[in-house]
Design a protein around this nucleic acid. Structure first.
Length: 573
DNA sequence: GCCGTTTTCGGCCCGACTGTTTTCAGTCG
């Protein structure tokens, strides 16, 4: 039973309680607990096995701690079973329909006996819904449309993908007259790896004109709402965009509010409450008096805290860290001195060594490691020992042609099923850097997969484990791994873990990065570039690194060439 | 159901928008 499954059971319980019309605060308690569990980074099963006190986790009290133990022992818990017996299973998916919440769903079930999306669609089509008290024609139409969208599921988009739309919208909105400030807030600003919708905040002399301009954006499929200060639309690409306009004096409070996360906001507001203040998106108030709100700095200082970077605002300890003056100084792109994972035409890359090196130099880097695939990946011409020697000659030539960037000769060597490597130790011993990665046998059992990685790290030549979990965002779960064991071993063996900056990978994720940092493991933020343009993926890696609380000192490719080489060499020692 | 240098009980973030309403409930973020 992994944390994710336990969290899902609590989310489901919350949904069911909500439909049953239960106390909304109890519902929230389950969701808070689920959130805590999701971002824990430690295995609850193990914590329970070791007899650790679960109630010290935020949002988990005596009752939920007991339920967690029950889930781990029996696979579920009696309260959930009870609810599942009472509520038809189809009702939960109705929550995904726009305009339907727990109250209306309960009404529809009680009066029309609706228990599924299909029954909902039929009833709406027949006009039965608009006949109910409290429901009308418009709502019926919204529901009808909502049923179709609900079937598509609540899609989330990769950050990099969302960014292209965000930039386009900002460009478009900036054409509107009277626009002053503009910022894309929400999970986009927090640099979350996936973004559900875009929240754009503006200040303007005449907000209504901006709203008018906004809804004239050519790529809009549906206008969901359009008020005086807010509007919501759906783009043809199915991305939802919310626009909000506020006064200048509220810009900071609105930015803070719309940046979220919700959990962070609630925590901040609770602190404010205790200090006799009220925070909403218009400002910080003492009684009816506005006391702050122009900038986010004002909001934080009103509650006695230093500025907290958006990437940290998940209520995962950032508020406590801020109170105690130990917020991290998050790593930035200009601090990056090089890239330790990229490919060339020698395997499946599109550019030559020289072209990659020149591009890296163009980015202001001091070094770049050429790490093509090893022979196991035959279909993309992975390198064997012989080719590796030939490549060394070409690297030597490239070094002479571009003396002002240090070209490291490396490899992305395949980790075989038993944890041995695809190339001989002798061959690896001549390289400047060895990056090891899993590219096959993703379905091994957790024990075997973990053991495989541990054995690879035992090899004295292995410096870095690339994309450690192998997950592809929205496409493929990572391999089944005991991440704690992997990290402990990385620590013992002096192994570096990679944060792969490919927008579809971002592997390690934020939670694991924070865990690694806390354990004192160093991270290589690397693009895995397959052409010169890909080298620019570094900024996506930086986004993720910042969400993982990483500082310059945690990131090996912020080191000078000299220090980096010393570090890489020390592993072999 | 959680939580506590005001509390172990009584709170729990807060406001906009919509559609259905003659003053507000429900939903959403």
């Amino acid at each position: 039973m992994v944390n994710q499954q336990i969290a899902q059971k609590f989310y489901k319980t919350a949904d069911l309680l909500e439909i049953m019309g239960e106390n909304p605060f109890r519902v929230r308690a389950y969701r808070n607990a689920a959130r805590t569990i999701e971002s824990l980074g430690r295995d609850l099963s193990e914590m329970v096995a070791q007899g650790e006190e679960l109630t010290k986790l935020p949002g988990i009290g005596k009752d939920l701690a007991g339920k967690i133990r029950e889930i781990i022992e029996t696979g579920t818990f009696s309260k959930l079973k009870e609810l599942e017996a009472k509520v038809p299973p189809g009702l939960i998916e109705l929550l995904k329909v726009e305009g339907l919440g727990p109250k209306r769903i309960k009404t529809l079930y009680d009066t029309l006996g609706i228990t599924s999306l299909e029954e909902l669609r039929e009833a709406a089509a027949k006009g039965q819904i608009s006949a109910l008290p409290g429901f009308g024609k418009k709502l019926e139409q919204t529901i009808l449309k909502g049923v179709v969208l609900a079937k598509k599921e609540g899609r989330r988009f990769r950050w990099a993908y969302a960014e292209s739309f965000a930039l386009e919208l900002v460009r478009f909105l900036k054409k509107a007259k009277g626009l002053n400030q503009i910022e894309v807030a929400g999970s986009f600003r927090r640099r979350k790896e996936t973004v559900g919708d875009l929240d754009i905040l503006v200040t303007a002399s005449n907000p209504e004109k901006i709203i008018e301009h906004f809804v004239s954006f050519p790529d809009i499929k549906t206008i969901i709402s359009k008020g005086q200060t807010r509007s919501t639309v759906i783009l043809s690409s199915d991305i939802q965009v919310d626009l909000r306009a506020v006064e200048e004096e509220s810009y900071g409070s609105a930015l803070h509010y719309f940046t979220g996360s919700k959990a962070h906001n609630i925590a901040i507001r609770t602190i404010a409450q205790k200090a006799g203040l009220k925070i909403n998106e218009y400002g910080v108030f003492r009684g009816k008096d506005w006391v702050a709100g122009r900038s986010e700095d004002e909001i934080f200082s009103a509650v006695g805290l230093p500025f907290i970077e958006p990437e940290l605002r998940e209520n995962r300890g950032e508020i406590e860290a801020a109170m105690e003056g130990r917020l991290p100084q998050l790593v930035t792109l200009p601090e990056i001195r090089g890239d330790l994972h990229c490919h060339t035409k020698w395997s499946d890359g599109q550019n030559t060594i020289l072209e990659m090196a020149r591009a890296a130099k163009g980015l202001g880097y001091s070094y770049i490691a050429i790490t093509d695939h090893s022979r196991r990946l035959a279909m993309i011409k992975g390198l064997d020992e012989k080719k590796l020697e030939l490549q060394a000659i070409e690297i030597e030539e490239a070094r002479k042609r571009i003396p002002d960037i240090h070209i490291l000769h490396g490899i992305e060597v395949d980790i075989l099923e038993d944890g041995t490597l695809d190339l001989s130790d002798e061959a690896l011993s001549h390289l400047d850097v060895v990056v090891a990665a899993i590219h096959s046998k993703f379905k091994l059992s957790k024990t075997k997969q973990t053991e495989r990685l541990l054995r690879a790290m035992d090899n004295p030549h292995v410096n870095i484990i690339a994309h450690p979990t192998g997950r592809l965002i929205g496409e493929r779960e990572g391999y089944d791994l005991d991440m704690e064991k992997v990290m402990e071993h990385a620590k013992d063996r002096g192994c570096i873990l990679e944060l792969n900056a490919q927008p579809s990978r971002l592997d390690l994720n934020d939670v694991n990065l924070k865990l690694a940092k806390e354990m004192g493991i160093r991270i290589s933020i690397a693009t895995d570039a397959h052409n010169v343009d890909n080298l620019r993926f570094m900024r996506f890696g930086i986004n993720q690194a910042r969400r993982g609380w990483l500082e310059k000192k945690d990131v090996v490719n912020s080191l000078s060439t000299k220090k980096l080489l010393r570090l890489l060499h020390s592993k072999k020692g």
